[in-house]
């Protein structure tokens, strides 16, 4: 399956803003994080199609994953 990975704030440093990823069926968010060298506890907000999920969340074809370190404001 194909998913879109979006990185934000410091996660972009030395990585990318947006990339497509080809993954085997049954992959979860952890399978995205590992090759990017991002530890699950560095992720403050993980959105899959805009919904907040945890690292064990299973992915589907066409999903958009947005990953944020701790950030905020107002």
């Amino acid at each position: 399956m194909r998913v879109t990975v979006k990185l934000f704030a410091t996660f972009r440093d030395g990585r990318f803003k947006v990339e497509e990823r080809e993954l085997p069926q049954g992959s979860n968010v952890l399978n995205i994080l590992e090759p990017l060298n991002i530890k699950p506890d560095e992720v403050a907000i993980c959105l899959v199609n805009g919904r907040d999920v945890n690292a064990q969340h299973f992915l589907n074809d066409g999903d958009t994953i947005a990953l944020f370190p701790p950030v905020g404001g107002g």
Partner: peptide, 25 residues
């Protein structure tokens, strides 16, 4: 030590919210 007050806000300012709020729809 808090990620938001110790890193997020100092590094990017409040406009760091643009992408978070947008990606949340």
């Amino acid at each position: 030590e808090n990620g938001v007050t110790g890193q997020g806000l100092p590094t990017y300012g409040t406009a760091v919210l643009v992408n978070i709020i947008n990606e949340s729809g």
